[in-house]
């Protein structure tokens, strides 16, 4: 059983979010629950932002990848819209991969309503300014590094409002 779950986890680390290539859905913290019954696998995932257009692709890619495991007969992938995804769910590996691709990971211990800043993913300078809170997708912002003069993107901090 544990072995099967480990195999599934390994597979989930290979499926990327199409909007953040090279960062897996596992490392983004989108996998909420995995159940195995015989050869059937049931995966519950948590969407990042509502209205994220990539969800259907993710669903398809996860299903396809898991079904390639020899012992799996079928895999059902569901999104639970009642689960709250937060940027705190991103793993260290996820943060590392984001940075490598010029996207600054969200700031840690962010409090709702606070102003936030992140360090430049290229040169680590904290001399950065916000160009546009909304980047190409709702989950990202566009910033500018005053030190190395590079524009870069950052994932917006999204944390549970009620906690």
């Amino acid at each position: 059983m544990q072995e099967q779950l480990d195999e599934i986890q390994a597979v989930l680390k290979t499926v990327d979010d199409p909007e953040l290539p090279s960062v897996s859905v596992f490392d983004l913290g989108m996998v909420h629950d995995v159940k195995v019954i015989g050869g059937s696998v049931f995966i519950t995932m948590t969407p990042t932002f509502a209205g994220c257009p990539a969800l259907d692709f993710i669903q398809r890619d996860v299903k396809k990848a898991v079904e390639e495991l020899e012992w799996v007969t079928d895999c059902e992938v569901q999104f639970s819209f009642q689960q709250k995804w937060s940027t705190d769910a991103i793993t260290d590996e996820g943060k590392h991969q984001l940075k490598k691709h010029g996207v600054a990971p969200p700031p840690e211990d962010f409090q709702p309503g606070q102003k936030w800043t992140v360090n430049c993913p290229y040169c680590e300078s904290n001399y950065t300014s916000m160009d546009n809170v909304f980047g190409p997708t709702a989950c990202r912002s566009i910033l500018y590094c005053q030190a190395c003069k590079n524009p870069f993107e950052a994932m917006k901090p999204v944390v549970d409002y009620m906690s």
């Binding site: 509502a50 709250k84 809170v133 909304f134 009620m162």
Partner: peptide, 16 residues
């Protein structure tokens, strides 16, 4: 639950 989730994103809209 859904309201809680939406409120994690909506403050950015209001601020804008």
């Amino acid at each position: 639950n859904v309201a809680g989730k939406v409120l994690m994103e909506q403050p950015y809209h209001l601020a804008h």
